[in-house]
Design a binder for these strands. Sequence first.
DNA 1: GTCTATAAGGTGATAGAC
DNA 2: GTCTATCACCTTATAGAC
Lengths: 192, 192
Amino acid sequence: MDRRRTDTRSRIRSVAMELFTEQGYDKTSMREIAERLGVTKAALYYHFKTKQDIVTDLFASLPEGIDEIVRWARNQPAGAKTREEILVRYGTLLHEYGRDMARFFYTNQAAFGRHESAFTMREGMRLLAHAMTTPDHNPLDTFYARQALLTLGWSSAMMGDLDLTDDECFEASLKLGRELLQRISPTAGHIT
Amino acid sequence: MDRRRTDTRSRIRSVAMELFTEQGYDKTSMREIAERLGVTKAALYYHFKTKQDIVTDLFASLPEGIDEIVRWARNQPAGAKTREEILVRYGTLLHEYGRDMARFFYTNQAAFGRHESAFTMREGMRLLAHAMTTPDHNPLDTFYARQALLTLGWSSAMMGDLDLTDDECFEASLKLGRELLQRISPTAGHIT
DNA sequence: GTCTATAAGGTGATAGAC
DNA sequence: GTCTATCACCTTATAGAC
């Protein structure tokens, strides 16, 4: 049977995720991952060509999710309603991934700073804020849009120690995000 | 004259700051700092015992600033007015340091994760949110307080590319922060 | 798929001369 | 204060046997 063909691969994924969130991407070595797993470094390199590839694999569907929102938004009329829907979709996307993901990305920004294909939350957030302020992209409006989106990201990343469930955090930050969007000029995104 | 006694030391500080914000703390090596400065690594170690010491030195007055706010808050009556004043003081503290500092701390969280004396923005933010929700520390109120404080941090850290001055960012995020604080139960912090 | 062994080079940090 | 030289160790990644 090859039912277990991908077993080691997925064990690598989960151990790596564990260590990355625990101590950071840069501070976690392939040796460490291999040791906790009880295999050798070389075994890791059979499954993943590089260290970065593990991360890319872990969050493959995240840039896809962002991209999907952007594409969806393109076919919508610009305005407050679309802005809010983008916010909700972004929040839902992060919420589905869970707290570990958000914490991982928000704490390890430096690790994926200026690298070729590496996806960053910063980039995703900026893309969505851009879509939310179509077509004028007023700087102050963009500022508000970004802050609203960041509220969603941080809600999972920095509030883990509070006595609130994931769902409660999600809902609370969605409320805050919506409120921040109200600051955007009501005429933005409308043909005048 | 020993007027220039600290010249190299301060040049190290500014070059290190430059590289740290540019490419992250972990990805910047002592060799790199030394090279850009035109000195040897050993010279660096004359001025700073460790790499971490450079960072600690760069932001020495930041934990002091936070601490001062916390101490001030202890002598104030709990309630909405004190909460708002904490927010303003925190914002002003960050604003005075400038964008580079905020960007540095918000992007390099992983580098100072679980380390002895290393100050983290996360920790400072949590202390202040705790002070803002005295004495009951209701989880949802703490959530709102943290989000309000984070708004201030992000304004300098993630908005650098927008066509807004530092002052404009500061004022805009202060407005947002104040608004978020309104969510905190009006009775919080008052003797009932 | 996983192993041993090793390449090739980088890291923070120190000793001791000048 | 700054240098050269070096230590001890770690890193990512690969070749080739099993």
